[in-house]
Amino acid sequence: MGGQTGFGPIAADDDGQFFHADWEARVYAVVRTLQRRGVINKEFDNLRDAIERIPPAEYLSLSYYERWLRATEMLLAEKGLLADD
């Protein structure tokens, strides 16, 4: 997204917190744990690849940890690692 225009001004304030909802922390923990297990690789490339494969309109509508969640779900489905509901 480097160099794209039209995203407007930067909201420069920040509260210094890691997470802004409990579910964000849980998504982070899930991703790091899957990384330890090798499901997500050490360098994070396969999760990053999945994040980039989120359809663009949806990508832009999701928050940072929503993108992590969506990509993790995609990756797990592609690897067939979870039993069907």
Partner: peptide
């Protein structure tokens, strides 16, 4: 992590 910072 914002689109604005990453792009600009």
């Amino acid at each position: 992590k914002s689109f604005a910072y990453r792009s600009r």
